[in-house]
Design a protein around this nucleic acid. Structure first.
Lengths: 222, 222
DNA sequence: CAGCTCTCTTGAACACGTTCAAAAGGCGGG
DNA sequence: CCCGCCTTTTGAACGTGTTCAAGAGAGCTG
């Protein structure tokens, strides 16, 4: 049988313990000393595997992203309508993230720091970001939506940005079980779909072209 | 002559010193001990006036908001065109904030924490927020823009939200002298103005109504 | 002036994230 | 079995934000 290297065991023991304590007591109230003690290792050992307390949640971040990709793809299989596809993907994220809303808040605040490797715009997050954009591309391509080809090319990235906006809203959402975040998704998605459809109208063309151009220029890396 | 109470002097000595050190060395690299030493007081004394290091920047925050209100109003006097008014107000903010971009970043990250009193959505920030929304109302009301009355009522709040978006972009902007943030403003504002005008078209009415409704519902406090 | 009270000030102490020199384990080659 | 080398582990120590009990002033009252 395939034996897991000892070091990998220690690593995952630490990250598992950390996640448990974070969800139990919140991020701020969980100390590195407590994590180490609970995992039965020394503080220094935790720092041998993770360069900071913040870094500890990168593992969780990756985990939730992976779960979301799988769960969302499953939902897309039998649904051709664009708005429904997008809605399903976003609601699915809200559902998966719900258990972590309490400390997730703290986490996503750290992630808002442009310097942090946890920022969705950082180089370190490039892989996760690309995967999410790819998912949005599937949302668009597998649907029956009719679009200006130029908009179609940009849309996945725009939808990813929209998703980041939803996350931002979710972080600030204090309603029971993040009901308001769900409402945001349920009501804004049909609107987006209608706007996307409208974008093919003649009056709209110049405006939608310019929007696409602007985003494209802004998205260029410095 | 009106004598300033001693305590006010100490308070402002501390905040002034802190601002200077923050801009010189950045927020993280400036310690409370350094601030206290430089101001010639004890660490405990700084905490007598400010409940945390973060709190120290609330002063700066208020200051910049006040400067912006004055400077922006001056720009509005002889300009009737809606897009130009909005653009002037936003570019004016970018200009005022530029010297603080370096540590402002750190600051606005803290402000992204929904729990923090520095969050633009917090109760503590209500006064500053209302003042900014009022400014946006002047931008709209003093202009020649023609609007659906319902949209007109909501627009100031929407524009304030848009401004928060610009700030978010600015925080992540790493281009020289935040050139990209200026570009964002210069190109997105005319688009917004055109969209606002389009909103009076018959095809658009239902969509724009729903957008206004949605925002209104979301803006309701829990 | 003596005493009292309230504001202001102090600096040592605490808790936490983080670092680092040193020790302990594990392992392949002699 | 021992030696040398690399990985892993340790815990004391450091720097930082923050707290707090104690003291110093400043002003008021009898």
């Amino acid at each position: 049988m395939q034996s897991v290297p000892k070091s990998e065991e220690t690593r995952s023991l630490i990250v598992t313990t950390a996640m448990r304590l974070f969800t139990e007591n919140g991020y701020d109230r969980t100390t590195m000393r407590a994590i180490a003690a609970e995992a039965g290792v020394s503080v220094g050992n935790a720092y041998y595997y993770f360069s900071s307390k913040e870094q500890l949640i990168q593992g969780f971040y990756d985990e939730i992203a992976r779960l979301h990709l799988d769960a969302a793809r499953a939902l897309l299989v039998h649904e051709p309508r664009f708005a429904e596809r997008l809605k399903a993907v976003l609601l699915c994220w809200l559902e998966l993230a719900e258990p972590y809303h309490r400390f997730g808040t703290q986490f996503f605040v750290n992630a808002a720091d442009p310097e942090s490797p946890l920022s969705p715009f950082s180089d370190e997050s490039a892989a996760a970001r690309d995967a999410s954009i790819e998912l949005m591309r599937e949302v668009v391509d597998g649907s029956d939506v009719k679009l200006d080809p130029e908009l179609r090319a940009q849309l996945p990235e725009l939808l990813w940005l929209f998703q980041m906006g939803v996350v931002l809203f979710w972080v600030h959402d204090r309603s029971a079980r993040e009901k308001r975040s769900r409402m945001l998704v349920e009501r804004s998605v049909p609107l987006l779909a209608r706007l996307a459809a409208l974008s093919r109208l003649r009056v709209f063309r110049p405006v939608s072209r310019e929007i696409v151009d602007l985003i494209q220029d802004l998205a260029k890396r410095d």
